[in-house]
Design a protein around this nucleic acid. Structure first.
Lengths: 346, 346
DNA sequence: CTGAAAGCGCTAACAA
DNA sequence: TTGTTAGCGCTTTCAG
């Protein structure tokens, strides 16, 4: 079942090792025999057996991709496909295969990563999320297995290679956009507080307020899964405050869309009554009503860089840990406008 | 580098073959030695080398997943993550790994499938799309390689195992929903006409109109990529007709959202002026404004069934081709309402 | 019930 | 520049 290197060798009248060298394009083989061997390969329709090669090499040309269990659909959905496209482009370019983790629960995913590592199924791993106390990344560190993180590590920032945006600054910028338009009461709506992105973006939001001399109020922070029930209630309460916000910084485009729907139900209009800015620039943010002003984090670019990084790490074990910051870009669209002139607070 | 079966054998004072049998849980090994061997495995922290096993077995425990090149973001995005979740759940249950195709262009993807097949990287393949004249599926058929299709094959319907919804009937049903509400001028907005889903859903739409004695007009068919420029123009024209539609059957939730945005810009309200029904029940359709009446095709279920099917096919080469129809369910939400009483045409 | 040994397809010394 | 040969780690006859 299947043409092997031996068949080719026989056909080309050389030794199997020669064929192997031709495959590897070894420089010590004469162009002449190379040609002969290549012809034989074509004629017989030879294709290398990846497993045999991996076994002999102790190296698979494969990367593992680990994604968080899909409980929080909101953050994950379109982001995931896009980042995968980026990874996949580079992987193909570099002739690497892509393996993805399976399982639904956090534990199942952990097991699946174990299989990848122990089973020699992949050479390196890309983690598509970064969260506080992640057993998977602990495991990889302990095993000293090559991996990179998309996002910012919760700790050991200097020893884990990661590719990220400067989320703090991005959050500062986008919050400033609101401030420049005269907003003084700006709330923050975040997602899972275990995720480092959430923390970074919140930090930027607070820095911006601080710098502008605006108060940071606890009542202006919401962390909740907005697509579940309960989100509505939280938003409702936010606007029941004596001084309801006129601007919202929301951690993710999809959440923004959910929030806009709730706001409409509650009788508020975006941007007339409330301005919204958010993050990711998922393509949906262009076709939402209104189109969202959002931070384009270059999801595809994050994927590409991550793939390049792991491959580097795999090829060179001594490759030092590095951090790659992918530039962001603010897309100004129609979800914000000047704050009404006389804020309630004055 | 790594504990092998030999190390375990030595530690347990048995032959390597015995260890192998214990791993396979061979019935001819005494419980006693099984215990001893297992203990040794635990103690040493043994993990099988998947490549070696694959090589000896001529079988990887892996499935390949092939997705269409990501040009048409609209159709693909959230659908993909969801179907993947389904596949991944079963894959983990059955202890299979997941390999995904890489590359951006159609040709790169084809190459990547070749690598999977020729390289013995996977035992079976799941195609996440079904399109007219697909070189990938032609290749798999020719190689007689186990695969299943999510969707309906364009031809050879009876010889290709596939899992699908009854899209024709679903389209009939959802179109009838519009008809029952008194709509008589119903347009269809489809996506890529190379995709079989599009064709099926259009067919159902036409059947429903026919049955109700409503005319099927060419001007009422739009096929375009709606997130690109040009979509707006097409929608605009649709509503410039002498008898503009009052109801829209749209092939995908995301397209519906795009269309709603365009409609609003053109000054039409959903559902007051136009009713919309669509397909997939991507979770976004719940949080859109208005929430969409849509066909829940059970994306996750499609993924699960597909995974089960390939695994069956892999385990039993003679497994006959089969078709699995995953039931759909119509979610009635707020994007439709009774047609205005006096249609322009009367 | 268990062991010895051959072989899966390929690579990489080591020779020539 | 090429051939010979010994593995990579595991499975699986075939003996015992």
């Amino acid at each position: 079942m299947g043409i092997t290197i031996k068949d080719v060798a026989k056909a080309a009248n050389v030794a199997p090792s020669t064929v192997s060298r031709v495959i590897a394009n070894n420089s010590r083989i004469s162009e002449n025999t190379k040609k002969r061997v290549r012809k034989a390969m074509k004629d017989l329709g030879y294709h290398p057996n990846v497993n045999a090669r991996n076994l002999a090499n102790k190296s698979t040309q494969a990367l593992g991709i680990v994604m968080k269990s899909s409980t929080d659909k909101a953050l994950q959905n379109p982001f995931f496909s896009e980042v995968l496209r980026g990874i996949s482009a580079i992987a193909h370019e570099e002739e690497h295969s892509l393996f993805i983790s399976t399982g639904e629960t956090e534990n199942e995913i952990y097991e699946s990563v174990e299989r990848m590592v122990y089973g020699n199924q992949v050479d390196g791993i890309i983690l598509l999320y970064s969260q506080v106390n992640d057993p998977v990344s602990d495991f990889l560190i302990e095993k000293d297995f090559p991996f990179v993180l998309i996002g910012k590590p919760y700790n050991q920032v200097d020893s884990i290679t990661h590719v990220d945006n400067d989320n703090v600054t991005a959050a500062v910028d986008i919050t400033n956009h609101l401030i420049e338009q005269g907003h003084e009461r700006i709330a923050f709506i975040g997602g899972d507080t275990d995720l480092v992105v959430t923390l970074d973006r919140m930090r930027g939001y607070e820095l911006a307020l601080e710098k502008a001399g605006l108060p940071i109020k606890d009542e202006y922070h919401i962390h909740q899964e907005f697509l579940k029930s309960g989100g509505r209630e939280a938003v409702h309460q936010l606007f029941q405050l004596d001084e309801p916000p006129t601007g919202l910084v929301i951690v993710d485009d999809l959440m923004s869309i959910g929030v806009m729907t709730m706001l409409e139900e509650l009788g508020y209009q975006v941007p007339q009554d409330v301005s919204i800015v958010s993050f990711n620039n998922v393509y949906l943010s262009e076709i939402s009503r209104p189109p969202l002003t959002t931070v384009d984090v270059n999801i595809h670019g994050l994927g590409c860089q991550a793939a390049k990084c792991v491959i580097e790490k795999v090829n060179n074990v001594d490759e030092p840990a590095k951090r790659i910051i992918v530039p962001y870009d603010i897309k100004k669209r129609q979800s914000t406008r000047e704050a009404k002139n006389a804020p309630l607070s004055e």
